[in-house]
Simulated scan of single mutants.
Amino acid sequence: MTEKIQKLNPDTAIDIAYDIFLEMASENLDPADILLFNLQFEEKGAVEMVETAENWEQEIGVLIDPNEYAEIWVGLVNEQDEMDDVFARFLISHREENREYHVVWKTN
C-alpha cells in the first residue's frame, strides 16, 4: 500500500526555509552577499515556493522524488518581479515526522 504524503502548506514551507536561511546564512554566504541581502530585502526580497526540480541529484548527490519535497528559493527580485539573485535554494521534505532538508547556497 502506498502511503499518501500530506504536503507542506506553501506558507509553512516558506517559513521553515526562511528560518533556516536566517540561522545559517552567516556561515554559508559571503559577507558582501549578506550585506546586499539585508540592505535590499525590504524592497526586493522574496521567499518563494517553486516547482520542485528534478536535478537535485546533481546538486546533493542523492536521488529524490520531487513529489516528496518542496523547493523554496530565497533571493532578490528584479524590476520584472523575477528572482534573478538567488541566495539559497531549499529542498524540504513534506514528511513531518522526518523533516529533512537540503540547501544549495549561492557561490560567487
Rank of each mutant, 00 (worst) to 15 (best):
E3G: 12
N9S: 11
N9C: 10
P10D: 06
P10M: 03
D11N: 13
I16M: 13
Y18Q: 05
Y18W: 09
D19L: 08
F21E: 04
E23V: 02
M24T: 07
E27L: 14
L29V: 07
L29I: 05
L29M: 02
P31I: 14
I34R: 14
L35I: 13
L35K: 13
L36M: 12
L39Y: 13
E42Y: 03
E42Q: 14
K44Y: 12
K44W: 12
K44G: 02
V47S: 04
M49L: 11
V50P: 02
T52Y: 09
T52E: 05
E54V: 07
E54W: 01
N55R: 09
W56P: 01
E59Q: 14
I60F: 02
L63R: 15
D65E: 08
E71K: 05
I72D: 00
V74D: 00
V74H: 00
G75P: 03
G75M: 05
V77N: 06
E79Q: 09
E79G: 01
D84E: 14
D84F: 07
D85F: 11
V86L: 04
F87Y: 12
F90N: 03
L91A: 06
I92C: 07
H94A: 01
H94W: 06
N98R: 15
Y101H: 14
V103P: 10
V104P: 06
K106W: 12
